[in-house]
Design a protein around this nucleic acid. Structure first.
Length: 282
DNA sequence: AATCCGGGGGG
DNA sequence: CCCCCAGGATT
């Protein structure tokens, strides 16, 4: 192993978050649930949601057999509800096409909507102990700094250590080699880092943003409120578009605006619209 | 290449 | 308050 590899794995052995539940399992279903949650949310916020989700859907067949509405309800507080839908569809595909298991080969993984290059590699490393490099923006940044861009992330994976290596890079990037204000002074890799010491002013970028719309007027806010309202609906019940508009009282939104928003959510498959009444998709 | 998605965290 | 932020799909 190279000095970088040895030092980072040694740091991880002492400082890594090896106690995290998705680090202690090789159950591909549990790994894919954690990956979908972690793509959008901080670890501390994911932990309780992860436990609750697995309690409600203990295995892939439970999730496959559930309704979309149940999956979206269990997703409450995580945001990005489309990902709950995709996770649920992946569970269905695993049961109908892959013998009830998350597939191991790259092509099969990539055929599942919602699994891109990053998540496919993460699943192969964390669930199947393959030496793939799961490259998110944190890992890309860390590797670029450590080698000044001379090495591809995949080339750095120590043979047979893909699981711990990917975990180590992520923990390191989250705590030491952070995007802004990296802690070079206490970095265990500073003596082998090509970028040490990083020049802070180099991070400055010319920013002149157009003025932003208030968050309450954004499509994102409105969609989130609509899904939240439907989530609280008793199972099997639907609500009329007019009642939805009246209940939510979204700032600056007409009844027609609400209809348009609901139609978009219906195209996404999150809600079902029938006779101007709407509910989460069954 | 740019945009959409849903909030939360940090300065 | 203001700025920044992730991965995947779509166009």
């Amino acid at each position: 192993m190279s000095p970088i590899q040895k030092r980072l794995l040694a740091w991880y052995a002492r400082n890594g978050r090896t106690h995290l539940p998705w680090r202690k399992t090789r159950d591909a279903y549990r790994i894919v649930v954690s990956e979908f949650m972690l793509q959008q949310t901080q670890v501390e916020r994911v932990l309780p949601k992860y436990r609750a989700f697995l309690k409600r859907f203990p295995n892939i067949r439970t999730l496959a057999a559930a309704s979309v509405a149940e999956a979206i309800r269990e997703w409450q507080g995580l945001g990005y509800n489309s990902r709950a839908l995709r996770l649920k569809r992946i569970a269905e595909a695993a049961v109908t096409k892959f013998g009830g298991k998350i597939p191991r080969d790259l092509e099969s993984l990539r055929s599942l909507k919602g699994i891109g290059p990053y998540t496919a590699a993460a699943l192969r490393a964390f669930a199947f102990d393959e030496d793939d490099a799961a490259v998110d923006t944190n890992v890309r940044r860390v590797v670029e700094r450590l080698t000044l861009g001379t090495e591809e992330p995949q080339a750095l994976v120590p043979r047979g250590r893909g699981h711990d290596w990917n975990s180590a890079l992520m923990d390191f990037g989250a705590t030491i080699c952070t995007a802004r204000a990296p802690k070079c002074a206490v970095c265990p890799l500073k003596t082998v880092c090509a970028a040490f010491p990083i020049d802070p002013p180099a991070i400055k970028s010319p920013r002149s943003k157009a003025k932003s719309v208030p968050f309450e007027r954004t499509t994102r806010f409105a969609r989130g409120r609509i899904i939240d309202r439907l989530r609280r609906l008793p199972p099997g019940r639907r609500v009329s578009l007019l009642a939805l508009h009246r209940d939510l009282a979204l700032p600056g939104r007409t009844a027609q605006d609400v209809t348009t928003l609901v139609e978009a959510l219906a195209r996404d498959g999150l809600v079902t619209l029938c006779n101007r009444k709407v509910a989460l998709t069954d």
